[in-house]
Amino acid sequence: MKEGPDIARIAALIGDPARANMLTALMTGKALTATELAAEAGITNQTASSHLAKLDAGGLLKPLKQGRHKYFSLANDDVAQVLEGLMGLAAKSGHLRTRTGPKDASLRKARVCYNHLAGDMGIRMFDSFMARGFLETADEALLLTESGSAFAERFGIDVATLRSAKSPLCKECLDWSARRSHLAGSLGRAILSQIESRGWARRAPNSRAVIFTPPGEKAFEAEFTLKTG
């Protein structure tokens, strides 16, 4: 018998179309009910409950009960990163489920990926951080430099609190639409939260798209420039 991780089991859990749709819906980072996930997958509530039980047993979901309602979210960042990687592979291979259109253009420009900024604007921000020396790689890990920490503090982020948490501060996440990196981890989530708090952008309803206001986009461009000085 072969030994090692059973990737076939995980792949089978993700590979079912209904379960794939539900997992993709949870990439916004928002917890959803079984009824909401059933609607995303286009299946009945009873069928959705069966699928959710399998995903929960497989360690891909984290259920949360609040009052009479039960919510589901992705189990952790690792699950989100695998899903984003699969999206990149599917897009690169030409396996797209919808025609290119205005909605797709919005997703390519800016979208949420498990509560951090992805799309062209997320890539631009990551490139800016790398060019300005705010991030560096060491032993395949992504690290926040002293100058990067100072920038984040000026941007209104409590870096010390983020460092004290168990979740990784900085992670490199491959963007499925451009197959280039954007910033994940607790810092990536905190930056998107600040962008929303400042009123620069909002999350589109029933979509992963992040919509920037014209002033917000100008402020973003000014803050996350590629200048090295």
Rank of each mutant, 00 (worst) to 15 (best):
K2D: 06
A11F: 10
D16L: 05
R19Q: 12
R19W: 00
L26H: 02
T28W: 04
A31S: 13
T35P: 05
E40N: 14
G42F: 03
A57P: 04
L60C: 08
K62H: 14
Y71T: 06
A75T: 02
A75Y: 07
V82Y: 10
A90C: 08
T98W: 09
R99K: 14
D104L: 10
A105F: 08
R108C: 11
K109M: 13
V112A: 05
V112T: 15
H116W: 02
H116G: 06
M121Y: 09
M125Q: 14
M125I: 03
M125R: 14
A131P: 03
E136A: 11
A138N: 05
A138Y: 08
A141P: 03
A141L: 10
S147C: 08
A150Q: 12
A152D: 01
R154N: 12
G156C: 07
D158F: 06
V159Y: 02
L162N: 01
K166A: 13
P168H: 02
L169E: 05
C173E: 04
L174D: 06
W176T: 00
S177F: 13
R180D: 05
R180Q: 15
L183P: 03
L187P: 01
G188I: 00
A204L: 10
R208Q: 09
V210Y: 08
I211H: 09
F212P: 04
A219N: 10
F220E: 01
E223W: 05
T225F: 08
T228A: 14
